[in-house]
Structures are given as structure tokens and as C-alpha cells.
Simulated assay, not measured.
Amino acid sequence: MAYARHQSFYLRDKWFSKGLRAVDQDSRFFFNEFSFETIGLGKNMVESLKYWLIAFNVIEERTREGIRGHYLTELGKTLYDDDKLLQRNETLAILHYHLTRNINDQSTVFEWYFNKYKETSVSKPDLLKSFVTWVSQNEAKEISEKSLKRDIDCLIQFYTKAPNENDPEDVIFCPFSRLYLMECIHSGEGFDTIKKITPEIDSVGIIPLYYVLLSHQAANEVDLISVDEILNREYLLGKTFNLSRNKIIEALNILTNHESYPIQFVRTNNLDYIKLAKVSPIDYLKSELLKG
């Protein structure tokens, strides 16, 4: 598991497009000593940017003809062509899912907070204490509390650092604050309250919700998924997006009317299941994006 590889920088506005463009133009970009000069960021910021792009699963490191480089993944190519400026919440929600899924073992604190940590409202010190306890129980080696505190700080800023409405030149906000999955209620005593927020379906978008379901189907090779699983199982809609059962049912009802890939409700052993279409997550995503 990985900790504090973000250099204490949450993703800033415009970083995503800058990073994908740099990799698309030069696979050796992140290995170049003076890459920070060409992209206009500090050295630590460039390291942070590389971290985020790998954690999002939009770039990967490969060796071609004996030379290491970074290349856009299929997801990276798709988002680079369609929404590299992160103007749509659907794009943010898909990238959020990949952070919480943590397939590349880069974003442990995101996986932990959304999938394993059950409290919905907690003081910041208690949140850190819970993370420290969980890491100590799941890591063979000792991880410094300083690193874990940087992870918690970054996690909170990632979802709560909204634009300054009084400053149109503000560039240090995080675009993921638009998903409104977390709220930080400030206290002058250092005991800020961190709350998980249940968003409206429209603010996340129906496309990411189906993308997550299809990703689960592909990863687990299942034909049916129960509504209870969708609500309570790790890496599915209830955990990933803090969705209630009512919100999940609302989304599933919308997906029964999908023009190309409608889902079906199936009742088995007095439990409600859904049956998804047979399409890969990336093919589904491309088909939706082609609609404009």
C-alpha cells in the first residue's frame, strides 16, 4: 500500500490536461530533469501530477524497446479526447471511482475512506486516529503518522477545496469539489468536522454509475448483482458515491430505460438483482461520449 506520494498537493485546476498533453507528446516527459520548466510547475508539483495521473489509471509506465516511458491508457486516451479540461462532473466521477478502487495501489487513503471507513461524520483528529489504527492493523511495516496526516489533509482538500467566488483568477481549487461528496465544517479549535455527503444523481451523472456497475461485472465475471450489494459492497455505488438505497433505486430505474444497454430487474430468492448488458466499461463509455 502507498502513502503520501502526492507530495502534499491535491490536484489543481488545469493540471489534468497539462499532464495528459505532456505525456501524449513525450513519453519520457516525467523522466526529463527539466520537465517542470516546460510545464510551468514546481519540481514537487510535477511529481505530484505524475502520481495523480497514475492513480487515476489514465497513464501507465511501460518499457518499449528497452526505454521506460509513460503512455496514455485506454481510459486516458478517451478522456483526453473528450474532456481533458474536466468540465463535466461525469469525468470527475469516473476518475474518483478509480481513486477509490485503488487498482494501482497508489491511493490507499481514498480506498479506505470511501470503502472501509463506516462513519459518516467525524472530527478531523478522530478521522486521522482511525486511519492510523487501520494502517497499523493492515501494514507489516510501520508507517509514519506524519505521512498519514498528509494523506488525510490531502483527502479533505481534494473534495472540499472549492473555487473562491470572489477571485476569478483562483487556480488552486480542486475540480473534484464539484462532486460534493464531502463537507468540512470548520472549527477554530482545530476540530473540524468531516462529513460524507450524499449527492444528487444529476451531480454525479448516470454515466459514471453505469460505468462502475460494468466495471464490477467485468472484474468479478458475474451476471447478476443484488441491490443490497450495490448499496453495501466495496467499490460499488453506495460506498463509492455515498449513495442511499433510494438514490441507487432512482439510478437503476433510469438505467432500465437506457436506449442501447438497458438493465433488467430480476427477483430471485426474495432479493432484487439487476442484470447488466454485456458490454465492457470502456466500450460503454466511448459509446456514451460519442453521443456528445
Score class of each variant (00 low, 15 high):
Trp112Ile: 08
Trp112Tyr: 12
Tyr113Ser: 04
Tyr113Asn: 10
Asn115Lys: 10
Asn115Ile: 10
Asn115Gln: 13
Lys118Gln: 14
Glu119Phe: 02
Thr120Pro: 04
Thr120Lys: 14
Val122Asp: 01
Val122Phe: 06
Val122Glu: 02
Ser123Trp: 02
Ser123Ala: 07
Asp126Met: 07
Leu127Phe: 05
Leu128Tyr: 05
Ser130Glu: 09
Phe131Lys: 04
Val132His: 02
Val132Asn: 11
Val132Leu: 04
Thr133Tyr: 08
Thr133Leu: 11
Thr133Glu: 14
Thr133Ile: 06
Trp134Met: 01
Val135Cys: 05
Val135Phe: 07
Val135Met: 11
Val135Gly: 06
Val135Gln: 02
Ser136Phe: 05
Ser136Ile: 04
Gln137Leu: 12
Asn138Trp: 13
Asn138Pro: 13
Asn138Phe: 11
Lys141Gln: 11
Lys141Tyr: 14
Glu142Trp: 05
Glu142Asn: 04
Ile143Asn: 00
Ser144Pro: 03
Ser144Asp: 08
Lys146Cys: 09
Leu148Trp: 07
Leu148Glu: 09
Lys149Tyr: 01
Lys149Asn: 13
Arg150Tyr: 10
Asp151Gly: 05
Asp153Pro: 03
Asp153Gln: 13
Leu155Gln: 12
Leu155Gly: 15
Ile156Pro: 05
Ile156Arg: 04
Ile156Leu: 07
Ile156Trp: 03
Gln157Asn: 10
Gln157Ile: 03
Gln157Ala: 14
Phe158Gln: 01
Tyr159Thr: 04
Tyr159Glu: 03
Lys161Thr: 10
Lys161Tyr: 06
Glu165Asn: 12
Asn166Lys: 15
Asp167Pro: 07
Pro168Asp: 14
Pro168Phe: 14
Glu169Asp: 14
Glu169Pro: 07
Asp170Thr: 11
Val171Gln: 15
Cys174Val: 01
Pro175Cys: 05
Pro175Gln: 09
Ser177Thr: 06
Arg178Tyr: 04
Arg178Thr: 01
Leu179Val: 00
Leu181Arg: 09
Met182Gly: 02
Met182Ile: 15
Glu183Met: 09
Glu183Asp: 11
Cys184Tyr: 10
His186Tyr: 04
His186Glu: 14
Ser187Thr: 11
Glu189Ile: 12
Glu189Asp: 15
Gly190Glu: 06
Gly190Val: 02
Phe191Ala: 12
Asp192Glu: 05
Thr193Cys: 08
